[in-house]
Design a protein around this nucleic acid. Sequence first.
DNA 1: AAATCCGACAACCGCATCGGA
DNA 2: TTCCGATGCGGTTGTCGGATT
Length: 378
Amino acid sequence: MSQSQRKGAMAALTSSKQHEEEAMELRRGPWTLEEDNLLMNYIACHGEGRWNLLARCSGLKRTGKSCRLRWLNYLKPDIKRGNLTPEEQLLILELHSKWGNRWSRIAQHLPGRTDNEIKNYWRTRVQKQARQLRVDANSAVFRDAVRCYWMPRLLEKMAATSSSAAHHGELLPPPPLHHPSSHIPGMASSPSPIHGSSQPHDASTNAPAGSGGYGHHRNNGYPVDPSPPPSTSTSGSVISTPAALPPVPCFSSELTWADVQYGGPYYADLDGAAGAFDSVLGLDGLDLGPADDCDAVYSDSTLLDYLNSTCAGGGTMMGVVGGAGNPHTTSCGGGGAMVGSEYGYGSPSPSSWRATDELYYQAAARKLGDHHHWGGGI
DNA sequence: AAATCCGACAACCGCATCGGA
DNA sequence: TTCCGATGCGGTTGTCGGATT
């Protein structure tokens, strides 16, 4: 081995040792306030990009990747925090049905939301529904279930939200209890952060208010919307056996409590609701391809066929169930399914919200099971 | 009151793609 | 054309706090 070769070998050894040491020093896990400040200050001075350079020059003992992720998913000023609004949830469902797991692409249509957030939402909430229905989350059957059960409920929520803002009649139920923070001054991120709110920023720390990380990243200090998406798993004490289920409510075509509340026939049928998707979402100008035509999708929905066949009114009705009474007691006689909110004058508690959601999806699961014979338990 | 379970989400990892040398 | 570093993307994991037992 020549001297130069030896030198080279030594250099390589030293270099690898240095790399090892660097690797040893690299921090992982939750970010500290100091790290966040370092990152933000560096980006304020030098701008985004060049993440590896940033990692080397900023004094952060993090990889460039880690810095980028922290910035894009948490520190960037226009990141929107808080729970996804029904509008956003609906949009996610719609876009996912078209694009699949293209999270970044979907995120582009939800300003302020990150792909990571959307992905987590899908995995923790949407996929759970699929599990409860015992179908694959990417299956057509599940998409139908989403369209027939979940989307209309989100639409109803959206309508209820806007309606409660416009109506203050004494017949109206109190605001949904799943938006407790809506009454807290300063909680701009809920219930409708989609309308322009951005990450609140704590000037004293130069860190996002309710800062995530620092050992307490849970919820980032932001208000939690206890409203589960349809059928959040609960203790299981609500639903014991199918035999114990009260009739799953269904609307007739008579005047409903929703009509009284909202001043007219309320989502007369699924086709009507489906037709409203695009305009509600502002998707009129967005090319969603074949899936854009919700009516067409609904028209050949197996689940819809089944629902239509089992509802006494001959159609799958949506709306607010119950009215001034027990929301669970309204039935369509045939035990058919219903899509809509259980909000009524009975002012359901959050637990009843959960219970009713459970009912919807238990019913959906049963129907899917009847039709498709999904085997196996969870 | 303690133990356990579970949902939520930040963060990490591996792979793919892009762009410049 | 090839190589290589930077960046982006999607899947997965780790950890926390709240709920339940």
